[in-house]
Amino acid sequence: MEEKRMRWSILAFGMVITALGASLSVAEISCSEALRSLITCTPFLVGFGSDAPDTVCCMGVQYVFEQANTTATRRDLCQCFQNFASEIGALPERVKELPQFCNIHVTLPIDANVNCSN
């Protein structure tokens, strides 16, 4: 059960990253690398622990944001995270709050129903 929550949390968080847009970095990031980078955000996203993500979580958010620098990569990551959605239970309000807590500007709405092909 805990693993399912963690995966959903990572999915939801990934949708945040997908919405963040491109950065200047050249490297691309894989699904598994993104999931590993965001694992520390799980307690915050599922409502366990503190009311704010920790510094390591925000560093992971920033890293994934910087690496998701092409439309194709962002689409792939979106799909990657959506594949976990039915298995994990992140709190939607926590997902929406993550960019604000990590001081990252989001230009698109954070929504579990996002269309990854757009």
Rank of each mutant, 00 (worst) to 15 (best):
I17T: 15
A19M: 14
A19I: 10
A19F: 08
L20T: 13
G21N: 00
G21A: 03
G21K: 00
A22T: 11
L24V: 03
S25E: 01
S25H: 02
V26T: 04
A27D: 15
E28K: 07
E28Q: 14
E28L: 11
E28I: 04
I29L: 09
I29D: 06
S30D: 08
C31P: 13
C31I: 14
S32K: 14
E33I: 12
E33R: 14
A34Q: 05
A34P: 04
A34G: 05
L35K: 15
L35S: 15
L38N: 06
L38G: 07
I39W: 09
I39T: 13
I39S: 11
T40G: 04
C41Q: 09
C41R: 13
T42M: 08
T42L: 07
T42E: 12
T42Y: 07
F44E: 05
F44T: 06
L45T: 01
L45Y: 00
L45E: 00
V46W: 00
V46F: 01
G47L: 05
G47E: 04
G47K: 02
F48N: 02
F48T: 03
F48L: 10
G49R: 02
S50A: 13
S50M: 10
D51S: 10
A52E: 15
A52D: 10
P53F: 10
P53G: 11
D54W: 08
T55H: 09
T55M: 08
T55N: 11
T55Q: 13
V56S: 12
V56Q: 12
C57Y: 09
C57N: 06
G60Y: 07
G60T: 08
V61Y: 04
Q62T: 15
Y63G: 02
Y63D: 07
Y63I: 04
V64M: 05
V64K: 03
V64L: 05
V64A: 08
V64P: 03
E66P: 01
E66H: 01
E66Q: 11
Q67R: 14
Q67A: 14
Q67T: 06
Q67M: 15
A68T: 02
A68F: 00
A68D: 01
N69Y: 05
T70E: 11
T71C: 06
T71K: 10
A72C: 04
A72K: 08
T73V: 12
T73C: 03
R74G: 02
R74E: 02
R75Y: 07
R75T: 14
R75W: 06
R75E: 13
L77R: 13
L77N: 12
L77K: 13
L77F: 12
C78Y: 13
C78T: 14
Q79H: 13
Q79I: 13
F81I: 10
Q82E: 11
N83Q: 13
F84Q: 08
F84V: 08
A85P: 03
S86P: 11
S86W: 12
S86Q: 14
S86H: 14
E87R: 10
I88P: 02
I88Q: 01
G89T: 12
A90V: 03
A90I: 02
L91Y: 01
L91S: 01
L91H: 01
L91M: 09
L91F: 00
P92W: 03
R94S: 00
V95E: 00
V95R: 00
K96I: 11
K96V: 12
E97H: 04
Q100T: 14
Q100I: 13
F101K: 09
F101Q: 05
F101W: 02
F101C: 03
C102F: 05
